[in-house]
């Protein structure tokens, strides 16, 4: 059986400290087990013979940094992921947002933006998109370029269309994109309301106040102290009575901000800031 390299604890600490000092990217609060896997995977894909060579290459080639950041963070996302979550957004959150003259939403750690487009479609169907702004941020500049292009593989549209219908969508999902070859390009009207920027949840500050913040399947990659810190950042960035939406397996139960939040619905991970 093929022998893969496995990064050791001390090598991991050394590497992450170097990346922090040389490039200012702080991954020290990321969950270790997952981080090790990502690094082992990258070392194997890019065929480095040893960690020493990998580390040397990363620290002496700034051009490789973007690939490093993009590959060790997880960029798996889909449109209308967990359709029942979007059903609750439609029924219980959008009617509240509709009462505001202006709607500001932050998708933190949005990756290639499938979720941002899903939300734009929801807002369009509730006739709210014209008065909304969707701030889409991620640590990786590369994934944000994909988001801005609005182009996704056509092969996924069948699944997304099923998710859309399950989420309570009643229109024809295909009206939101134009198919060409093996790609689907989403209508410009959807991304005209998106403001796209890099933002590092570990080191960057709050930059606005929102009525709804999404951060789904990002906190699972952080250790407990970093989770609490980032939740504090969201708390600072959320209006009173605003909504916080997390991934299906993430929760506020043991976090310091938890006491000020109430679940909107028993099952879905959407909370409302009460104080």
């Amino acid at each position: 059986m093929e022998k893969n390299l496995h990064i050791q604890d001390d090598e991991l600490q050394l590497l992450l400290n170097d990346v922090m000092q040389k490039y200012g990217y702080d991954f020290l609060g990321y969950s270790e087990a997952s981080m090790k896997r990502r690094i082992d995977r990258l070392v194997s894909i890019d065929r480095f013979p040893s960690f020493a060579e990998f580390r040397h290459h990363l620290l002496s080639n700034e051009a490789y940094l973007q690939r490093f950041v993009e590959e060790i963070t997880v960029n798996v996302t889909e449109m209308f992921r967990d359709p029942s979550f979007y059903r609750v957004l439609r029924k219980q959150v959008l009617p509240v947002l509709a009462t505001h003259p202006f709607v500001r939403i932050w998708h933190a750690g949005c990756s290639t933006g499938e979720e941002v487009y899903s939300m734009a479609i929801l807002l369009e169907e509730a006739n709210l998109l014209h008065k909304s702004l969707l701030y889409a941020t991620d640590i990786n500049p590369g994934v944000l370029q994909k988001l801005q292009s609005g182009i996704f593989p056509i092969a996924q549209m069948r699944q997304y269309s099923e998710n859309y219908i399950e989420s309570g969508g009643t229109g024809d999902f295909s009206k939101y994109y134009t198919a060409k070859y093996n790609l689907a390009k989403f209508n410009e009207s959807l991304n005209s309301k998106m403001i796209v920027s890099t933002h590092n949840l570990v080191s960057d500050r709050s930059f606005n106040e929102f009525q709804l913040i999404f951060c789904r399947n990002v906190l699972i990659y952080f250790d407990k102290p970093l989770q609490d810190k980032v939740l504090g950042l969201f708390d600072e960035s959320l209006e009173t009575l605003g909504f916080l939406a997390l991934g299906a397996k993430e929760h506020l139960t043991f976090s310091p901000i938890g006491k000020n939040y109430q679940p909107v619905n028993g099952r879905e991970k959407i909370w409302r800031k009460m104080y």
Binding site: A33, V76, I220, G247, A248
Partner: peptide, 21 residues
């Protein structure tokens, strides 16, 4: 282990979920 997530075990004997490839 919940469906649609990988499960990893941390050094401090806690569990982590991961939705990577």
């Amino acid at each position: 282990v919940p469906s649609d997530y990988h499960l990893l075990v941390e050094k401090d004997h806690t569990l982590s979920l991961d939705d990577s490839e």
